[in-house]
């Protein structure tokens, strides 16, 4: 019998790394407005005029940043923005959806802005919908929301999980781009959760309270909880639609190793996007989030470099449906 390929041993820890990255992105979106508020206090040169709560914020941030920087007004400007558009030490990065919707709104091309989305664009073409699984600040809240619904289910509360057509989000994207160009303003940003999160965190920390986006975001959370699990991302998110289209022929994919699979279907249960890893059906919706790699009890999930999904391999060789020796016709029957 041929040697069964095993996944690289660190890949089953990628899901933990992903949670760390999601938490870091979210923490950054909170830290950046706090640092900005501190910068405005520094720029005002009027510590004695601050209110007690403002003084406390000033003291805490000064204590935390003073060992690393000399000039807060300039050096704390190194990292600014959110996942919609931001920059790291001079490197401007923008969401491809921001570029697409800005092009639709102004009906013109502005090359410096388009180039700022080049790196995310190339990464999306290689890794597919990785932004949704690895960076999106809304993903963390949505996955915690999914966990909440799992706990509610455990507690005996039956929550519905309707299935819709996954292609609805492409219509949302098209309608959003049409409305954006008709209205002449980037309306997609009002319903796109990562843009909402970055913006609203800034509004509530540095300006005078939440805007309208937080209501929309809570509505999407309720939609996810009461109508369909992870429903907004699966069926409605215009950004997810764009990345799915861009990542259709992505290079990095997850594949099942049929030789060590025992058909336990844990991968299907854990998949936030309702895909079917058990039957090798990932499609363009997969975010490469590696949750199925982490949960697999027999190490039957791995990464592969292919432009299309691995062809269907039938039932796992360790499962009940697979009969050793007389494989082909039984596999056909199982299909």
């Amino acid at each position: 019998m041929a040697e069964i390929s095993r996944p690289f041993f660190l890949w089953r820890h990628l899901n933990k790394v992903r949670w760390v990255i999601l938490s870091l992105v979210f923490a950054l979106l909170i830290v950046i407005p706090v640092l900005h508020v501190y910068q405005t206090y520094v720029a005002a040169h009027a510590y004695d005029l601050l209110a007690p709560s403002e003084k406390r914020l000033y003291d805490v941030v000064e204590f935390a940043t003073a060992p690393f920087i000399n000039d807060p007004a300039e050096e704390l400007d190194a990292v600014k923005g959110n996942t919609w558009s931001g920059y790291f030490w001079g490197l401007q990065l923008s969401d491809p959806l921001a570029v697409a919707s800005q092009m639709a709104a102004s009906l013109s091309l502005y090359w410096p802005f388009i180039l700022s989305s080049l790196i995310p664009l190339v990464l999306t073409i290689i890794f597919g919908r990785f932004f949704c699984g690895w960076l999106c600040p809304a993903t963390m809240i949505y996955e915690l929301n999914s966990n909440l619904s799992a706990w509610l289910k455990w507690a005996g509360l039956k929550l519905p999980n309707f299935q819709f057509d996954l292609r609805i989000k492409y219509v949302v994207l098209a309608i959003g781009l049409i409305l954006t160009s008709l209205a002449g303003s980037v309306l997609i940003a009002t319903i796109y959760p990562p843009a909402i999160i970055g913006r609203e965190l800034y509004f509530v920390i540095a300006l005078d309270g939440f805007g309208v986006g937080v209501v929309i975001f809570i509505a999407t959370l309720l939609f996810d909880l009461l109508v369909a699990r992870r429903g907004f991302c699966r069926y409605l998110c215009p950004g997810g639609a764009l990345y799915s289209l861009l990542g259709r022929y992505r290079l990095v994919r997850i594949r099942r190793i049929a030789e060590s699979c025992n058909d336990c279907a844990k991968c299907n249960v854990v998949c936030e996007f309702g895909l079917d890893p058990l039957r090798d059906d990932f499609g363009q919706e997969c975010t490469n989030c590696a949750a199925c790699i982490a949960i697999c009890p027999t190490d039957a999930m791995t990464f592969t470099l292919r432009l299309t999904d691995y062809p269907a391999q039938g039932p796992g060789h360790l499962g009940k449906q697979y009969q050793h020796g007389s494989g082909a016709d039984l596999e056909a029957a199982a299909e």
Binding site: T40, A43, A73, G81, N82, A98, G184, V186, L207
Partner: peptide, 25 residues
């Protein structure tokens, strides 16, 4: 201006007097 602005909030995030606000509601 409304066609060109993507609403990323960067202008507000660098404003030293924090005078730039946003049409949030």
């Amino acid at each position: 201006f409304t066609a060109a602005c993507i609403g990323c909030g960067l202008c507000g995030e660098v404003c030293p007097p924090r005078c730039i606000k946003f049409h949030a509601r």
